[in-house]
Amino acid sequence: MDPELPTILELQVVTPERLLLSERTTSVSLPGKSGRMGILPGHAPLVSELATGVLFFEQGTQTRFVAVQGGFVEVLPGRVLVLATRAERGESVDLEGAGRARNEAEQALKKSSADQAESQRAQEEIDWSRACLDAADSKRDSNS
């Protein structure tokens, strides 16, 4: 192995509201627009758009989960920068709130079938709450 390659990744997830996390990790998996991507230290520089879904990364023996929606990722050999529109840690997801949001969005989707912009927004909302729930769920699985 090339001795110059870094062995850890600096992972940053930022949203317009805040810097959600800045951690050192050994591997990251994230939902790219054209499919899931696994990133290891020393990965070639890459840019991609993000889809809505769950990002997870390894810390020692632990895997941690983050729901992300929209935005971009920039990969540099020792750094992964995620510029998401929305992001939430799996452990801080409000399960009840997310479940409610999903139901409401599903209702809205049914009602708004005629209005395209409206139904698209509702669909995004559904995807987002699903991602939140998934991130929270995976969290529990990995701990048990």
């Binding site: 790219g32 627009k33 054209s34 991507m37 070639a44 520089p45 890459l46 840019v47 991609s48 758009e49 540099l76």
Partner: peptide, 8 residues
Amino acid sequence: PTDYIWEQ
């Protein structure tokens, strides 16, 4: 970097 892999 001098060059990126562009997923899109």
